[in-house]
Design a protein around this nucleic acid. Sequence first.
DNA 1: GCGCCAAAAATTGGCGCCAATTTATTGTCT
DNA 2: AGACAATAAATTGGCGCCAATTTTTGGCGC
Lengths: 256, 256
Amino acid sequence: MKRSRPLKRKLKRSEPKRPEPDAVDPRSIDDDPVVQGILTAISQKRLKPGAKLGEDKLAAAFGTTRIHIRQALAHLAARKVVMQIPNRGAFVYRPSWEEALDIFAARRLIETATVAAAIDRLDKAGRAELKAHMELEARHDRNDRWASLSLTADFHILVAKLAGNQVLLDMSRELMLRTSLAIATFEQPGEPDCSPDAHPDIGALILARDKAGAVHAMRHHIEEMEQRIRPTEGEDEVDELTAIFQEIGARARAGG
Amino acid sequence: MKRSRPLKRKLKRSEPKRPEPDAVDPRSIDDDPVVQGILTAISQKRLKPGAKLGEDKLAAAFGTTRIHIRQALAHLAARKVVMQIPNRGAFVYRPSWEEALDIFAARRLIETATVAAAIDRLDKAGRAELKAHMELEARHDRNDRWASLSLTADFHILVAKLAGNQVLLDMSRELMLRTSLAIATFEQPGEPDCSPDAHPDIGALILARDKAGAVHAMRHHIEEMEQRIRPTEGEDEVDELTAIFQEIGARARAGG
DNA sequence: GCGCCAAAAATTGGCGCCAATTTATTGTCT
DNA sequence: AGACAATAAATTGGCGCCAATTTTTGGCGC
């Protein structure tokens, strides 16, 4: 095909063979309005696990086309936020009970280590940011459920940010989202997401550089969250029955 | 067709309003041949960071259509394995230097905690699995570079599996893939991926239930890997050329 | 009335085509 | 000769259409 020019020093005109992906347009599909919309709707619990995400509906709702929606859904399916079933469509992901437990266990493992790392590298700017958030959380409007949810998630995000690791931060974001799916799936109705003073306590311990204390408080906080979910007791008999029957029906129809 | 049993409980006929996504076809796009193919090609370092992934080429290579490829690429882009740039196409993800460091730091943090958890819940079956893998690794063919790569990755995967947390396991898989991208991007040529006896050492410490020792060995092992990369000093020319040739090779292999 | 079978409506899956943009090649000027 | 500019080729992006499957609706027999 082409020539492989002996290298002189610089790369001349026949060089643009390599596209240099780093150097350009870092814009990804992450900030797609559809993806962001579904994500915030889920984290605000306005979309419940198992909810159908029809392509036409979404296209109409976001004022875009079906192709765009499908890309967004594929993206979200890769992040385990939605579940795609062939010929059935996309649904808000509903973790199994075991998966929910695993999510909490993973958070326990990761966030305890994260908070320790955050204390290690805590600097003036981090202190200020943490204080600012704690103050914000202290006097937020507890009646605004959606704002509350955002704030409580933001605290954990902030701790992950203080650890100074973008990869870890992204993983924590992911886990937080899946946590909210787990809670939405298995929570007892009517309880708040977090005990009100857990975050101030942890924040104070971080500011005091009390590593052992902060780690312990974080673990306790996550365990407390975990205590709030139950494996669909009581009324899920019906739920399980419907699932079983529907599965039998689907199998019979499909397998013939 | 054999039909379903008579169900007497609830569930009248106008009830199936809710589709129950849990109960059906857990088959996801994860085991799509295109996704798996690109993934293994990357983990075997046959696809190098920055390589162009043209839709037509891939469609021809996998014997499928462009639409299918686009879904697979969207999936991989969400997992940060490929990078999609509008109107330019998809490329094998090339982490920045900072991101590479973050990946190693995240692995240090997560895998040390993982190995501790693995020791805590180590049982007979886990022991056997670990021993089997160590034996396999002990007498593998070191000339088969691809098999070697698979084996070394499998050790870390196995440790994550022993921890008994599917979510953590998936995250570790993800991190391992991104590690191989980081190494492929910034490695010095000609060095092996792992020091040969790191894995046996760690395995022995796990079997001995020496938690502190295993954690330390794991941290050291990851730090050793991290030491092997350098921030593209000076030899950009060479790097560019290799990239060019690799891309030409990939093109030849894919399109013919 | 209840549950099963058949037809209809709605939804997803997939392909081809064409426009928009980028990339490679060629020509021209300094 | 080297660099810039215009043209040509290749690639991605997007829309419409139609087939395949599923979900709903209606009808029949017990």
